[in-house]
């Protein structure tokens, strides 16, 4: 589904990503892990076109996505969340979701000259978004401003918004960071359900228990290069992985 080869990205001298290659298989849930600063978020920024790579190839379903604008990549069927929650704070929860999908009323000509059609489509989309809110369990917050929700609720809105995009490849940057165990189970269920519905998920996560639970494949990144790829069990035993984490002195595998 996604194929990345010899990717490279420098920021003012530092090599954030170097010679990084990996695949994401169709309909899988894959984890991208690694110490802080390993370059995980940068990989997401590269895939979604927010920053330009210096070298390397990226193919989605066989066709290159190099040089495409973010909105064009989204329209191919790739969507993402952000490490820090990013909703539209002054819009309602429902409006946040409604923005996730293309709407014919976003075309100004339609908005002015085809009000009936736009209204009909709006009603349909609102119903669908309400179902998604129900799915993640916050339908009672539909008309609240996003900024007024709690941290966990905002995280759920972000996931619901990703669902609303109808994307096939979903990139999640730390979906359960700072989330309580109950909510974490809930998010896990949602992800499993998405997989059943045919979606492919690539997620960044520091919580190894969560990764062991939901992912069938793990890619370990260190200093911008993949140092191990395999099942969660395999990579946990990999010597280089242990070194990367322990040598870095950061959070990670110890004790899990």
């Amino acid at each position: 589904m996604l194929r990345i080869r010899h990717l490279e990205k420098r920021f003012a001298g530092i090599r954030a990503i170097q010679d990084c290659s990996f695949d994401v298989e169709d309909n899988s849930i894959t984890a991208l892990i690694g110490p802080n600063g390993a370059g995980k978020t940068t990989v997401f920024n590269l895939i979604t076109g927010f920053i330009r790579q210096d070298k390397g190839k990226m193919r989605y379903n066989g066709s290159s996505i190099i040089g495409m604008k973010p909105h064009a990549i989204t329209n191919l069927g790739i969507t993402r969340t952000f490490q820090l929650i990013r909703l539209f704070p002054k819009l309602t929860v429902l409006e946040n979701l409604l923005l996730a999908e293309h709407h014919s009323g976003e075309n100004l000509i339609n908005a002015i000259f085809r009000p009936q059609r736009v209204k009909r489509e709006e009603r349909k989309k609102r119903r669908r978004c309400m179902l998604l809110l129900k799915l993640v369990g916050i339908e009672d917050k539909a008309d609240s401003l996003a900024e007024n929700l709690s941290y966990g609720q905002q995280k759920l809105v972000e996931i619901a918004r990703v669902l609303a995009t109808k994307a096939d490849l979903i990139l999640l940057d730390e979906p359960v960071a700072g989330v309580n165990p109950k909510m974490r189970r809930h998010i896990k269920d949602v992800l499993k359900r998405l997989q059943k519905a045919g979606k492919t998920i690539l997620l960044i996560e520091h919580d190894m228990n969560f990764v062991m639970d939901v992912c069938e494949k793990v890619i370990v990144l260190d200093h911008g290069k993949e140092i191990a790829v395999g099942t969660p069990k395999q990579v946990m035993k990999d010597k280089r992985v242990l070194e990367a984490y322990l040598g870095n002195g950061s959070d990670g595998l110890v004790g899990t």
Binding site: F50, P70, T74, N75, T79, R86, A100, E106
Partner: peptide, 9 residues
């Protein structure tokens, strides 16, 4: 940025 990530030009 988020608007872009949701596919808006």
């Amino acid at each position: 940025l988020v608007a872009k990530s949701l596919g808006k030009d």
